[in-house]
Amino acid sequence: MRDLHGRENDLAHHLLLVSERHKADHEVYHLARDLAVWSQRHVRALAEAAPSYGIDLSAEPEGKATLAERLRERGSELLGLRSDAGLLMLRDLRTVYTEAAGISLDWEMVGQAAKAAQDDQLLQLVQQCHPDTLRQMRWANAKLKESSPQVLVG
């Protein structure tokens, strides 16, 4: 659970970075931000559940944008006029996908453990969060599928 908490935190932070880096790609900008909120929600849910298992996890998600990141956002608007922004976006989406895939497996394992231990509360948490992770993966995958032809061939 501690690992999962850390990884959800990382994914939220990374999605915010991706959003800021690709401000000129408006769908990525808005959606990465929206999907970061899901991971932040998971972080809070995990922190709430943690004490029952004798763990202490922070409920406050990391990943608030710093000044440096805001500067990067401005830079991304300028970079947005160049075509290598596309390659950078593919790399970023690939990372979102692989991070989310790792988290999905973590949820899978926690879910299996919850079933074996007949821990309904934990199972409920998994059922509440895991579908979000799968949707984050599908989004990154779909966006990659859509963008690759233009970036790689175009």
Partner: peptide, 19 residues
């Protein structure tokens, strides 16, 4: 047919970045 058709706002984006 390898991906959904490119919608208008994305086309404008591709024009913006020059592809």
């Amino acid at each position: 047919h390898y991906a959904p058709p490119t919608h208008l706002m994305q086309m404008m984006r591709y024009a913006e970045e020059g592809s």
